Computed example of a mutant assay.
Amino acid sequence: MSASRVKPTEPTSAVEPSRISSSDGAALALAVVRDGVITGEGPTTKGRVHFSRELDADDAAWCARILTARAVEHQPVSRAEAEALFEINEAAAERSDDGVFDDLLAKAIVHHAASASGLPVPPRTVALAPETAIESWAPTHAAGVDTEVLEWIASQMRGKRNSNLTLMRLVATIVGMATLPLVQLPNVFDIGM
């Protein structure tokens, strides 16, 4: 574990969804997952082979369980949780999760953006579920979406090695750039594909 991110005295139960009591607690648990992705060690990697800088299906499952913990199920995804997810995304140089984390990331970020803009969002267990299409609940136009939130998302995506095409498409649609060819979107966000 990264000593700068997780204190050695922090109990490993802090990542257990049943121990999460707030979105701040969920953000801290996501930081533990991030540290496990970075180092290949820690409570979220115990009992399995995990390489440094790899995000696998178990890591994605940890993130989903943390984000849908009973205490936060009916709360919108917080900025701290969204930032932790972006950090996990950036920490993972290799992926072996079949796109599960990318789906979760896009849904969680849009859940945060919509709720921060005052728009209604479904409970996390519905919105973040793999079988729920993001288009079934995400805003599809700029009306009502806070531009500061969209700018924050773009700043989180700008210049990052791991881009999320689903998130890019949704943000582009929301801000009215859906008519741009997909190959031009990296220029809009200043990110490489």
Results as ranks from 00 to 15, higher is better:
19 R>G: 05
106 A>I: 05
156 Q>C: 14
9 T>W: 10
73 E>Q: 12
146 D>K: 15
178 A>G: 10
31 A>M: 11
6 V>M: 02
42 G>L: 06
98 D>K: 14
175 V>A: 07
177 M>C: 09
76 P>H: 03
173 T>A: 12
54 E>A: 14
106 A>L: 09
37 V>G: 00
137 W>P: 01
123 P>R: 13
67 L>V: 13
181 P>C: 05
188 V>Y: 00
179 T>Q: 10
9 T>Y: 08
137 W>Y: 04
64 A>N: 04
147 T>R: 15
118 G>D: 05
183 V>R: 09
147 T>M: 13
123 P>I: 11
73 E>G: 02
136 S>T: 14
86 F>Q: 03
16 E>T: 14
96 S>Q: 12
145 V>H: 01
67 L>E: 00
94 E>G: 12
102 D>A: 14
64 A>D: 07
36 G>F: 08
103 D>H: 08
3 A>V: 13
6 V>T: 10
93 A>D: 10
139 P>M: 05
32 V>I: 15
13 S>Q: 14
98 D>P: 02
180 L>D: 04
168 M>R: 14
39 T>C: 04
189 F>H: 04
143 A>Q: 15
100 V>K: 10
74 H>I: 05
132 T>F: 02
167 L>G: 00
175 V>D: 06
112 H>M: 14
44 T>E: 01
147 T>V: 15
121 V>H: 02
135 E>C: 06
79 R>M: 08
83 E>H: 10
111 H>Y: 03
153 I>L: 13
41 E>F: 05
133 A>C: 06
37 V>S: 01
50 H>E: 05
168 M>D: 03
91 A>K: 11
81 E>L: 09
74 H>N: 14
80 A>N: 09
99 G>S: 07
95 R>M: 10
52 S>W: 02
60 A>G: 04
96 S>M: 13
62 W>K: 09
65 R>N: 08
137 W>G: 04
95 R>L: 10
170 L>V: 13
82 A>L: 03
179 T>M: 11
